[in-house]
Design a protein around this nucleic acid. Structure first.
Lengths: 334, 334
DNA sequence: TTGTACGCGTTATCAA
DNA sequence: TTGATAACGCGTACAA
């Protein structure tokens, strides 16, 4: 049993009210008793119960975070950003996983509500209209990361997929490439569409006609295999550069190229998206569009804090950076 | 304001006691009112307050997890294991980071205590004698991951560093290697020592004399640079195989080899430790000793549950697996 | 079958 | 300067 103010009160021979006041330096209490009680509290190792305080204040100083899985390094860094800002603001974070299972996602939201979290942050979910109604019923701020929905209590922070993609493709164009392919991931329809739009925009602005034969949406199980499937784009000699939906696809493509004796970047330039750790260790190190994952989390938590302080907030779209490494080179002249 | 049982009581024209009982199917309440109340609760979107329940039961069904950083994929997967087992047992997890700062670690432990978590799981900390006393004062189970200390409330789950290292070196010996080097990381004294012990044990059991010139503990900032420093072991032609403290070191060594035109695995076999994701994407894919990270987390949480159920538990040491990829090959005969 | 009263740990109000 | 009391939301012993 943790020490309570009553224990201290008993030990000090005063009422628990006095203890409560003394502990928070209420000037109404005499300096002498205040010091005596504070000393006693220290000695007994007293820590106030946030549970009791929450019951009274109806604030738990707690936020719930819903992710698909923490094992994904992308998600992990977002969580890191959220937690650091939360901790600095004296908020604690409940971390829950949904494993991409809508039922489980509903269930963890219920749990978070049971625990009376002050707000909820959801990352890469498919918050459906299914239960936005329930979310709104909770009457607490919900901040969505990389996933925008409309709704009264729904706010969002997202990365600018279109801008990031455009950045990558413009860079390739700057290197002299004209036959630039795109390998997409149709299982992430929204971001895939936006990245493809960025790809197309860059081409159009450079006056390069779109070639549908250069756009691939492989229907396979894993991103890695999607990358391998992209080999078709180069084997026929159609493309001199390929922009991939994400880094794993790019790495899959890169390794397929190695097996087929295609030299990267001399024969083919490859650009990924995300900025995951492995990208810097492959050979050659991968040029990629880096999502500001930490910032994504920090921004989401800061927005949450603003909402909790009844400040006006606006949805946020964060730009990506291009990290140039060695998987890209000027188009071979021939 | 969330709906309370009093709200329901008012709406149903009964006392809040009746509501409380009806909601948990107390047979003392008539079937009719029970149904009426349950229906009403559903309609109003009632969810019991875990806060109020906790105050009553003195159990929060909550555990606190302390990690250095979540951004480390290793840690992330451990957290994943903890969370999944916790969720299945109706426990929620507070995730907190210490960033390897002892003060912050103390402070998050204080916060967790304020929140009256039922138990604490700490991973890769340097729980010092500094505050083990405080931990014991909390009177709640503390489970340490990959870090063993002695103490009344301290339990631990760890990976068998020695066994893992031995596995790796025995494999190299089996490939015919005799001149096997070790690159350590002196900033993790404990695990480094244990892995080195495993390395030495394997050599001794094979009757291979220890050669101190083959053991390196580079004093540089990053693991990656440690790996690069390991180049010395091969440039002089002393070693035909190198076992590294972890994967990042191994990857650093691998890439240094590439720059110096040293063919892996033909001229040098390399084995890493950890089983991080990038290890499978380097060229050649890295042979490594894989830590069961998910299991580490699951075991820690299961142990915590056992402790909370007043069952006897014993500290746990989990074996590692060797994952053979392409960075290792039989010793070249010459 | 249902209601009253009390307590969990804390804080705020009012009284002394 | 201090203390008694009520309240937060819930569950339970006891009473009706």
């Amino acid at each position: 049993m943790p020490v309570t103010i009553k224990d201290i009160a008993k030990a000090a021979g005063v009422s628990h009210t006095t203890v409560s006041r003394a502990l928070k330096g209420n000037p109404a209490i005499s300096t002498e008793t205040t010091e005596r009680i504070q000393h006693l509290a220290q000695e007994l190792g007293y820590t106030p119960s946030a549970v009791a305080q929450s019951l009274l204040t109806r604030r738990t100083q707690t936020i719930g975070m819903v992710v698909t899985t923490i094992a994904d390094p992308f998600v992990a860094q977002v969580v890191e950003g959220v937690e650091s800002v939360a901790q600095a603001a004296s908020y604690s974070v409940f971390l829950t996983t949904s494993h991409n299972n809508p039922d489980q996602e509903m269930s963890v939201v219920e749990t978070l509500h049971r625990r009376r979290v002050d707000a909820i942050i959801v990352t890469s979910s498919r918050v459906g209209s299914l239960y936005t109604s329930r979310l709104e019923q909770l009457q607490i701020p919900i901040v969505l990361i990389n996933n925008q929905e409309e709704g009264e209590f729904l706010y969002s922070v997202a990365v600018d997929d279109r801008q990031g993609a455009q950045l990558a493709v413009e860079y390739l164009i700057g290197l002299g490439h004209r036959a630039i392919g795109y390998i997409g991931a149709s299982n992430r329809p929204k971001s895939n569409r936006r990245r493809q739009t960025g790809y197309q925009t860059a081409l159009q602005q450079a006056g390069i006609p779109l070639n549908p034969a250069l756009v691939l949406q492989p229907v396979v199980n894993t991103d890695f295999k999607r990358g391998e499937a992209g080999l078709d784009l180069i084997l026929g000699g159609q493309a001199t550069a390929i922009f991939c939906y994400n880094d794993i696809i790019a790495i899959g493509l890169l390794m397929a190229c190695q097996r087929h004796g295609i030299n990267v970047p001399d024969q083919l330039s490859i650009v990924g998206f995300d900025g995951i750790e492995p990208a810097q260790y492959v050979s050659p190190p991968l040029t990629t569009v880096c999502q500001p994952r930490l910032l994504l989390g920090q921004t989401a938590m800061q927005m949450t804090l603003d909402l909790l302080n009844d400040e006006r907030v606006h949805d946020s779209i964060l730009p990506c950076d291009l990290i140039v490494r060695s998987s890209t080179a000027p188009v071979p002249d021939n």
